[in-house]
């Protein structure tokens, strides 16, 4: 479904990714792990086209999307929830969802209701400006906004980072439910136990390269712990 081959990218002269390859197959949840600064967010940004790839390719459902704009990738069925529970702070929760719905190819209002079913906590907040929500609520809104486009692949960058524990559980459950319903996902996650619970397979990055990858069971190995230890 998503196939990344030899991807290279960076900021100006500073290269961050040195030939990253990974694969997400239909309905699978792949977790990208690694210490701070190894290039996880850069990898996701390059997969979505926020950063240009300097080499390598990104293929989605058999189509080479390496040179497409981010919004074109979204319309092909790639959903992205960036790091840091980002929203449009001055738009209401409803407008945050509407603006994404109107930009999606299907424009089907039932997608909005479906997204709110996944995050019912948002329902009483629809008229509030998104900037006044708590961090956890903003993260749920960010995920709901991505769901409104009815993605076939959902890319999540540290969805539980800096969020109060009670909402982490809800977000985790939502990820599990979406995964169980057959949605393919590419997830960046720092917490090993969370990754172990959710992922089918994992990719560990180190200094812009894939240091290790495999099925979730292998995550318990000693070598893996060495790569993740701070």
């Amino acid at each position: 479904m998503l196939s990344v081959e030899g991807l290279e990218a960076g900021y100006g002269r500073a290269r961050v990714l040195f030939g990253v390859s990974l694969e997400v197959t239909e309905g699978r949840l792949v977790c990208v792990m690694g210490r701070n600064g190894v290039g996880k967010t850069t990898l996701l940004n390059t997969i979505m086209g926020v950063l240009p790839a300097t080499a390598g390719s990104v293929t989605f459902e058999g189509r080479d999307v390496t040179r497409l704009r981010p919004d074109e990738r979204v319309r092909l069925g790639m959903g992205y929830v960036p790091q840091g529970h980002e929203t449009f702070p001055q738009l209401t929760v409803m407008d945050n969802l509407m603006v994404t719905l109107e930009a999606s190819p299907h424009r089907d209002p039932t997608a909005l209701e479906e997204a709110l079913e996944v995050f019912p906590r948002l329902k009483p907040l629809l008229k509030r400006p998104a900037g006044f929500l708590s961090g956890g609520q903003q993260q749920q809104l960010a995920m709901a906004r991505a769901l409104v486009t009815r993605p076939r692949l959902l890319i999540l960058d540290e969805p539980t980072e800096g969020i109060q524990p009670s909402i982490i559980i809800e977000i985790e459950e939502a990820i599990e439910r979406l995964h169980a319903a057959g949605l393919a996902m590419l997830l960046v996650e720092q917490y090993l136990d969370l990754a172990l619970r959710l992922a089918d397979s994992f990719v560990i990055l180190d200094a812009g390269r894939v240091a290790h990858s495999g099925a979730a069971e292998e995550l318990r190995g000693e070598q893996v712990h060495r790569l993740l230890a701070v």
């Binding site: 926020v50 919004d71 960036p82 407008d95 999606s104 486009t149």
Partner: peptide, 21 residues
């Protein structure tokens, strides 16, 4: 609405499927 979204967060607008150009 799209215009306000782009004004508030251009990158997020692009990754939400909005053709910012």
């Amino acid at each position: 609405r799209r215009m306000r979204a782009v004004m508030q967060n251009r990158r997020l607008a692009a990754t939400s499927g909005i053709n910012t150009g």
